[in-house]
Amino acid sequence: MQTRITEMLGIRYPIIQGGMQWVGRAELASAVSNAGGLGILTALTQPTPEDLYKEILRCQEMTDQPFGVNLTILPTINPVPYEEYVEAAIRGGVKVVETAGRSPEPFMPMFKANGVRVIHKCTSVRHAVKAEKVGCDAVSVDGFECAGHPGEDDVTNMILLPAAKAKLSIPMIASGGIGDAQGMVAAFALGAEGINMGTRFVATREAPVHDRVKQAMVDADERQTALIFRTLNNTARVFRNAIAEQVLEIEGKDGDTDFADLQPLVAGVRGREKVLEGGDTDDGIWTAGMVIGLIHDIPSCEELLQRMVTEAKEIIAERLLTSFAE
């Protein structure tokens, strides 16, 4: 499975693990890379740039394959030393960085000077075009189906991917709603040269989250996500649980939503401690994409990637080529 993405990143399969807060740690990133994909460490999961550097070194002890770092650039109440996180990634020898949120343009000279490939995550065609313009090496295009922040345009990948492909010359990675071989083949047909999976990798044996969270994803169907923060123009797709329902109830009241009313419910620390670490799937917010409806087991990363690659080849050879044969 050779594409411009596999050649650029030095990986066997065009499958990338999404950068996920609290989840993108060395255990998962190294497992994905060892399986032939590209694992991703989430920079801001680490409390300081020095902690990120140490996590990079820890990941290097667990794999000799390429892995990357995700850096999500967002406006925050307390300033984040983004440049220091960039420096930590470079000092650790990381050669692939996935950026998200605001434009990575201020950091591009530093990335380019150190031979770092930059993949920018986008939720619209216009942002993908801008990413190419500022020098990004590839874009990861996130459809409305995705977990986390899908943007405010509400465009699904069936439309978004070919629309973006038509205006790009750099490689495009499909992200959002992909969790099996069928989704991967469809993404390639729509113009992608790689796929990015977040939610699907949470339901693997190596993911550093509680087993009850993984089982909840297996038990759920495609309807069990919720869109919160819509009234704040900061939409997020999360697992539909008791806390998500409370947030939706508050947002559904007349008048402007005051984030102060939501903050105790959606605090990131609560989601990490109560849900991801504690296993209480109803006592905090945790992001999940609509792809949970396609998750039926909890394999190892190696098993998942091998299955997807094998089945993708079968789909192309047996279903697609046969269907269009003369």
Rank of each mutant, 00 (worst) to 15 (best):
V155P: 03
C136E: 07
E152L: 14
K121I: 06
E152P: 00
P150M: 06
P104I: 10
D153R: 12
E105I: 14
L161P: 05
V118H: 01
E145G: 06
A147Q: 06
L161H: 09
F111G: 03
V129S: 09
E145N: 09
R117H: 05
R126T: 10
M110T: 15
C146Q: 04
G115P: 02
P162L: 09
G101H: 09
L160W: 03
F111K: 01
P109W: 04
V139M: 07
A147E: 08
V134M: 15
F111T: 03
K112Q: 10
C136K: 04
E105S: 15
C136M: 10
D137I: 05
K121V: 03
V139G: 05
K112V: 05
P150F: 02
G143N: 02
F144E: 06
E132Q: 15
K130T: 12
V116M: 01
S124G: 11
G135T: 11
E145M: 06
D153M: 13
G135I: 09
E105F: 11
D153W: 10
V118R: 01
A128Y: 00
A163V: 07
L160T: 06
A128K: 03
M110I: 14
P109V: 09
G143V: 02
P104T: 13
A128C: 10
P109F: 04
V129D: 07
C136T: 12
N157G: 15
P162A: 11
F107E: 04
A113G: 04
T99F: 09
I159A: 12
A100G: 15
N114M: 00
H149Y: 08
K121C: 02
G143L: 01
A166V: 11
I119S: 00
P109S: 09
M108G: 08
P162C: 11
T123A: 14
